[in-house]
Design a protein around this nucleic acid. Structure first.
Lengths: 146, 146
DNA sequence: TTAGTTGCAAATCGTTTGCATCAAG
DNA sequence: CTTGATGCAAACGATTTGCAACTAA
């Protein structure tokens, strides 16, 4: 699959060009297992010896986003946008408020609920944010000692 | 409740001051039933004849957010941050990405799911964030015309 | 009186854009 | 060759900040 991402398939066709920079951006995105900012991608490319400028990173990200190859998201507060390869799985995370350890959930408890909502509200529902938080066993016993 | 919000309770104590501008910002927030941007609050105050400058609006919003009186959120894309009175009822909302119209959901689809998770992961689950978004009938038909 | 609040203008931060140059096809 | 991709620097929009004036307590 990494092969698939680095390969030509995505970048060619429709007049798009398969350039070294674009390949590098995709590589950076797929190698970091978590959502990353444009800045982080930029720095990672610089560190790997690929010279790029930040606007090229942004332009590439816009391109990949418009091609639906990556997802774009923001984590509630201020922060800059984060990008992540769009593996079309849909998953949520359980996050520990203490140590930030996260557990990926293999089920989405909302799918049927959204279907019901769609019918009730006539909204065209495009997505949701769901984050469940608490304390993992370790942090929980720790906090109860305080 | 509106009375409560406009009242002194929130704004006084801890060295905070109950000023006309702060009251006006809270009023604007509680009168618009949907999440609003700093700019929108600013304009609404100007229209009501309250003279403010945008930085005061931002500072007031920061203050209210840090006091946990309002919530701050962003709707996925670029756009500016939106703010909303934090009514501490546990409820979720369906938000239109177009006009930001919101529908309060009277059920939380997660309660049984969380019980199951607790058993499976041994996490002490303390809460969750859930926001469902999409396009309301109006905005949806509008966008499909383009 | 005095510390918190405001307005103003300038600064900052993330992101976008115009334009000339470069390179993939 | 032709057109899409890039670098650069300047522009942009949202938000923040320094500072002096103001005002609630």
């Amino acid at each position: 699959m990494t092969d698939n991402l680095n390969g030509d398939s995505i970048l060619t066709g429709n007049g798009h060009r398969n350039t070294r920079k674009r390949r590098a951006v995709i590589k950076a995105l797929s190698e970091s297992g978590k959502p990353v900012t444009a800045e982080e991608i930029y720095l990672s490319l610089i560190n790997s010896g690929d010279s790029v400028c930040i606007s090229t990173v942004y332009r590439t990200l816009d391109f990949l986003f418009s091609e639906n190859i990556i997802k774009k998201m923001r984590f509630n507060d201020n922060e800059s946008a984060c990008y992540e390869i769009n593996r079309n799985e849909h998953s949520h995370k359980l996050v520990c408020r203490g140590c930030r350890k996260t557990i990926s959930l293999d089920v989405c408890p909302l799918s049927e609920f959204e279907d019901k909502l769609k019918k009730e509200t006539l909204f065209n529902i495009t997505g949701h944010n769901l984050e469940i938080f608490g304390y993992c066993p370790d942090c929980n016993s720790e906090s109860s000692l305080i």
